[in-house]
Design a protein around this nucleic acid. Sequence first.
DNA 1: TCTGGGGTCCTAGGACCC
DNA 2: TCTGGGGTCCTAGGACCC
Length: 391
Amino acid sequence: MQKYRVIFHVDLNAFFASCEEARDPSLRGRPLGIGPSSERGILTTANYEARKYGVNSAMPVSEAKRLCPELKIVPVDFALYNEYSETFFDYLSQYTEQLEPASIDEAYLDMTDDLEDQHPKTLAKRMQDELWSRHRLPVSVGIGPNPFLAKMASDLKKPFGITILRKRDVQEKLWPLPIDRLHGIGSKTVPNLRLIGIDTIGDLATFPEVEKLRKFLGNQTEPFMNKARGEDDRRIDPARKDRHQSIGKSKTYEGFLHEHDEMLEALKSLTRRVSERLKEHELAARTLTVQLRTSDYENRSRSVTLEQHTNHFYELFEEVERLFEELHGTEAVHLLGVSTSKLTSQSGLVRQLDIFEASAEEKDEGTLERVLKSINRHYGKDVLKRGVNDE
DNA sequence: TCTGGGGTCCTAGGACCC
DNA sequence: TCTGGGGTCCTAGGACCC
């Protein structure tokens, strides 16, 4: 007999708002938004009282205020949310090692081998009750035979939901839902699918002309169709979140930047942050991307792949400056971003510095001096010693 | 109504290699 | 002299998610 997997998807409800309410219970019970203090800009999220008025995440503050004049808005506090996020994952990790954080506020758990004779629903209820009573964190739990159905299940009832979605429920519970409820189908794809008569998840699951679909869904055609039919064989991967694909920092400048010099200053501070964060994660990057958004919302980017990995501010900024000059004419700038990818753990970087030193010795004493100075400035003696010991 | 900031993944075209 | 087919890597840009 086939053994079914038991996958939980645990989702923190209105997470940022819930954190604010947990810290300051006086905020509870009335409409609350997280966002900027000015009328410009958009809400990051809103609590459920605010959502009753139609207020939602990514909504411009001006419109949210129009829908709900008594809306209270508090500024984002990522340090707070990261703390609660850690509390959340710590709590869940007592139940299984097969835990995969999916974002700051949701996790997949493969409970197949860790149920210990409990009914999944009993366990889910306990998680929900304890996260609320101990930490004032409201969660919805979805339970299914694969990650996709678990995620869809947790979505079906919020807040404080516990929902089981079996394969045999798919036709009744999933197929009537609009197609954009499928994770990965967004506002650009929906009109295309409408064009060929696909409005619901069921329409996609039973669509007969696969080649027609391929035009819009590309290589993802089969994965999407499988999901629409409730099939998903993805394994839970506890290490996935540790493997960063990219690290970047971007900032929107209200009122725009007009002077070339202030743009360079802004890029310098973005690059500095990126360099710091790479070092925090003990990572070094080989590809560097500079992003720019003009005042009329045109996005541009330039990237370069370096010969060696680096997380060194001066090496990064040299390239950032060069890419930016290629990217920018004379127009005002709305957003600037610096991002790094093709990351490797820092041990790779230490080797790189050794090679750098060797070639510097041969050719250019000045380069060696510069490298050594910057190593001392940015990593301290420990790292330098480690690099030497490696050889 | 007018669009934040952190990301992931995909695509298409070109360069280059065998 | 003309030029196949497969693969990999790089770059720019876009869609999407939380």
